[in-house]
Design a protein around this nucleic acid. Structure first.
Lengths: 193, 193
DNA sequence: AGAGAGAGTCAACAGGTGTTGGCCTACACT
DNA sequence: AGTGTAGGCCAACACCTGTTGACTCTCTCT
């Protein structure tokens, strides 16, 4: 993230610590899941005392909420090329998954933690469903198609980043796009079977 | 493990307890994941003392190993109908997911627990890869195709049973088959892109 | 009937967890 | 220079975890 908005320099030196805690927490949650990512381990990674985590974020749960509260700029659904939406979406997801660890964190934690699952459903509802609606489907149909897309995209993320199932984890971006884009394209634009 | 050696009826009344613990553990692991499924909670569900869990299974880890050690009879890969493999596989998976909770347990735990992830990779390697090979693909290609199938099938299980993403969770079996079977069919039999 | 083992309970342990409050230190401002 | 305060550490708390060993009950076999 290049901070272009802030014209003033970071006055408080606490800002650096706060950022360090957030980064350490993101990585630990992504690597270990919610329960096994201990406050002590996160504090150790950030180079500070565990009690500082509480002072800055209140509780472990609030810290996790702060981690998953970042923006996940999806492509603008309005005016997308109807025939290229599959390629566009798969490529975009690959970049999103690999840029920072937020989506990986979300997936790993969402499986056991209610707040994580909520946020995941939220991403689905505010990003994927509008895109399906933009392609001209009614409300119920759009939700169904968005869910199908989610199943394929999340499934690939699962085998690739969480389970690290070897052949999937080693596929190039182009390979993934070549195989998955037609699937996503069909889920979004093909006639209902 | 089907105990083929014992021809006699279950003599010991401990067998009932053992089964009760296994069932309670399966459900708790599936519902809460590995860490949050405590030995105390499992024992409570099974109606016995926590120490009995240890006496019967040695440790929590061994208990989990026993839970995921059950057979998951997949369809015989030899002599399958090449053009119907998509429908066959998706329908079979739906039944497998909903019959007992083992696969759901595996998915939920596999995300944070190494043993669960191992077993999941094992299922993939011993069941899905041979099926791809049976369809005439070389070793590397078969693994790639099997991984693609796994991504779609596990992804649907994820949104449907773990995240309970509403439109997906409410789809009928026929709907799921109608949408997913062509995807799986393409991953297994279409020419590589 | 008596003995022995199988099945089960109880209470406690050692270690790890999130969380809290008191104390120290170093900097910024007057 | 003196002082207030933000930033940080330390030690402890209450609780929960997996796990253990001693004890009791109850059936079965001789």
């Amino acid at each position: 993230m290049t901070s272009g908005a802030e014209t003033e320099a970071p006055r408080r030196r606490s800002d650096a610590t706060r950022a360090a805690i957030l980064a350490a927490a993101r990585d630990r949650f992504a690597a270990d899941g919610y329960e096994r990512a201990t406050v002590r381990a996160i504090a150790h990674d950030a180079g500070i005392d565990p009690s500082m985590v509480m002072r800055y974020f209140g509780s472990k749960e609030d810290l996790f909420a702060a981690v998953i509260d970042v923006e996940l700029d999806f492509p603008d659904p309005s005016g997308i090329d109807r025939d290229a939406v599959g390629v566009l979406l798969v490529r975009h997801f690959l970049e999103l998954w690999e840029r920072d660890g937020v989506l990986r964190t979300l997936l790993r934690v969402g499986v056991t933690n209610a707040a994580g699952a909520d946020r995941l459903r939220d991403v689905f509802r505010t990003q994927l469903v509008p895109m399906a609606r933009e392609l001209g489907h009614g409300a119920a149909d759009a939700e169904r198609r968005a869910a199908l897309v989610a199943s394929q995209v999340l499934g690939m993320a699962l085998v690739r980043y969480v389970l690290a199932l070897e052949p999937a984890a080693g596929l190039s971006h182009d390979d993934v796009v070549a195989w998955l884009a037609p699937t996503v394209q069909r889920y979004l634009t093909a006639e209902a079977p």
